[in-house]
Design a protein around this nucleic acid. Structure first.
Lengths: 285, 285
DNA sequence: TGGGATTTGTTCGTATGTATG
DNA sequence: ACATACATACGAACAAATCCC
C-alpha cells in the first residue's frame, strides 16, 4: 500500500471540479460533490482515504464540508481593486480630479456602506503608541466599523485618536457613536486645526482570527487570508493624529498604489482579469 | 465519543508550546514534540486522535511533522520591514537623501544579494500585456532573479521589458544573463531616453505555489502566505516601460508606503515589534 | 410535527510502508 | 540490520447535523 492513493483521488477530484462535473445542489445552489459513500465505491477505496483527499482539498480552499449536508465546491468571487493612494494628497495628474475615489480607499462601480461605529476608550498597545507618538499608557478613542460593499462584508476598520482630542481639544464628535458625515479628517481640521500632509501605510498578510472568520465567512484553508493595513496620518511638523487599522479578505481584494505620474486609465481601472499563471517558474530543482 | 477530544489535545499542546515546554532536538536544534506514541499514552487516547490534533496544529502553522524524525515547533523569524515607496521619485523630505534605500525596496541593516538573472523571451499574458500597453501576442524579455537577504531566501523577482527595447532600441544588455550594475531603469534612461516619472503597484496575497514553497521553505499551512507585488514603471506621456513581479513570504515581510510628508523616523525605521493583539475585536455575536 | 434516512464528524483498532539514525 | 517515528490505508462503530417524507 502506501502509494498516496488519497492524493490520486484528490487530484482526480480537482480535475473534475475544473471540468465542471458535479451539479448544483438545488436549483442555483452551490455545486456539490457526491457523498463520501459514493466516492468510496467510485474510487474503490476506504472512506478514510476519501476523507483524506477531501481534507486536502479543503485545506487548499477548493471545497468545504458541512456536517449533515455534504461537501461543496468553494466559489471565489472576482476580486475588487482598491486604490489606497487615491486621496486628496495624491500628487500627480490624477489628484483631486473627480468623484471616482473616496477618502481612504477607492473602488469602481461599487457602493460602500458602513455600520454604526462602536466607540471605545482604550489604552494603547505598544505598537499603536509608537505610531501615534504617545506615551505607552495613554488612552485613545477607538472607533470600529464594519464596511460593506454592495451589502457584502468587505472590511473591518478601527481608527484610533488620542483621547485628548475629544476631551481637551473640543473634537467631541469622536466620542459619539455616529458617523462623522464630513469625514473625521476634515472634522479634526475644523476643530483642532489639523491638516493632513502625509501618511504612512504598513501592510501585513495573515490568517484571519475568529472574529474575522465569522464576519467575512472565511475558513481555515490556506486560501483564507486577510490583509491588515495600518495607516498613520500626519499633520504639519510630523504630528500623528490618526491611526486606522483595516482588515480585508485577500481572496476578494487587490491593493493598489500610484506614485508619481501614472496614466489615468491605470489609476481609474487598475488591472484586468487575473489570468492565473505563476510569474516565477523555477522549473529546475 | 465525538466530543472533539482531538481539539482538547491540540489546545493543550498549543499551550505547552507557548509555555516553552518541549526541549530542543539536539543542542541548538529545533524544539521537538514527543513522538506520537508518547503523546498517545500521555493523553490516554488513540494514535489517530493524536494525529488529528497534530494535523490541526500543522495546518495552523505551529508545528511541522517530518517522517522518520519527529514533529517540530515552527520558528517564525522577526519580520523585515520593506518600504516600497522609497525611490528617487519619492516626494517629501526623505526623498533622495541617503543610502538607506535601494531602488525598489528599502530595508534596514540588511544586505540584499541576488542570483544571476535567468533571461527568457516570452509571449506576454493578457494581464501583463494590459499593464505594459502592448499587443496580446507581443514578445517580452523576462529577467528572473532570486533575492537573498543576509543569505536567506527573501524574494523572487521577475521583470518584463518589451523585446523591441533590446532588438530595435539598442538596450541589448537586457538580453544578457548578468546583473545590470547601474540598474535597469538608469540603463534604459541612458540607452533609450526613458525617464521614470511614476509607477503603479498592485498587491495580492495568496498561497505559495510549488516553486515558491521550495525556495522559501514554506508548507501548506494557513500561515504560509506570500505577497505578490506587481510594479509597472511609467515614463513621460504615460508610456509603460517595465513591469516587475515580486513574490515575498508574508510571515517574514511587512510592506510600507509613505505618501506626502512623513516623519523621517517613521520612514527610516517603520514599526516596532508587533505586539500581537487583534485590532478588530467583535466580541458580540 | 415527528421520525427515519442521509451525510459528515469523531474515535478507536490494526497493519504495513517509508524515511531516519 | 535494527529500532524509531511518521505516513498511508483499511475496517468499524457511533455522534451530530441535516434532510425529507
Amino acid at each position: 500500500m502506501a502509494a498516496r492513493r488519497w492524493r490520486e483521488v484528490a487530484d482526480d477530484l480537482l480535475k473534475r471540479i475544473g471540468d465542471g462535473d458535479f451539479p448544483r445542489d438545488k436549483d442555483g445552489g452551490r455545486r456539490k460533490l457526491p457523498p463520501e459513500s459514493e466516492l468510496q465505491s467510485h474510487y474503490e477505496t476506504s472512506r478514510n482515504t476519501i476523507r483524506e483527499a477531501l481534507d486536502f482539498l479543503a485545506n487548499r480552499g477548493h471545497v468545504v464540508s458541512e456536517q449533515g449536508k455534504g461537501t461543496f465546491i468553494v466559489f471565489r468571487p472576482e476580486p475588487v481593486h482598491v486604490t489606497l493612494s487615491a486621496t486628496e494628497l495624491g500628487v500627480g495628474p490624477g489628484g483631486g480630479e473627480g468623484q471616482w475615489y473616496k477618502r481612504d480607499a477607492a473602488v469602481q462601480n461599487r457602493e460602500p456602506t458602513s455600520s454604526v461605529p462602536r466607540v471605545e476608550i482604550q489604552v494603547v498597545s505598544e505598537q499603536l503608541a509608537w505610531y501615534l507618538q504617545v506615551e505607552p499608557a495613554t488612552q485613545v478613542v477607538s472607533r470600529h466599523q464594519q464596511i460593506y460593499l454592495d451589502d457584502e462584508p468587505w472590511s473591518l476598520q478601527t481608527s484610533y485618536y488620542p483621547l485628548d482630542f475629544a476631551l481637551k481639544g473640543g473634537a467631541s464628535k469622536l466620542l459619539e457613536a455616529h458617523d462623522i458625515p464630513e469625514g473625521a479628517v476634515k472634522y479634526l481640521g475644523k476643530t483642532l486645526g489639523y491638516k493632513e500632509v502625509g501618511y504612512h501605510d504598513e501592510i501585513r498578510a495573515r490568517a484571519p482570527d475568529d472574529n474575522e472568520k465569522r464576519f467575512f465567512a472565511l475558513g481555515d484553508s490556506a486560501a483564507d487570508v486577510v490583509f491588515e493595513t495600518t495607516r498613520t496620518a500626519y499633520g504639519v511638523e510630523g504630528k500623528a493624529f490618526r491611526l486606522t487599522v483595516t482588515v480585508w479578505p485577500a481572496d476578494r481584494n487587490r491593493l493598489h498604489y500610484n506614485v508619481g505620474e501614472v496614466p489615468t486609465r491605470v489609476m481609474k481601472a487598475p488591472s484586468r482579469r487575473s489570468s492565473r499563471r505563476s510569474p516565477n517558474g523555477d522549473e529546475g530543482t
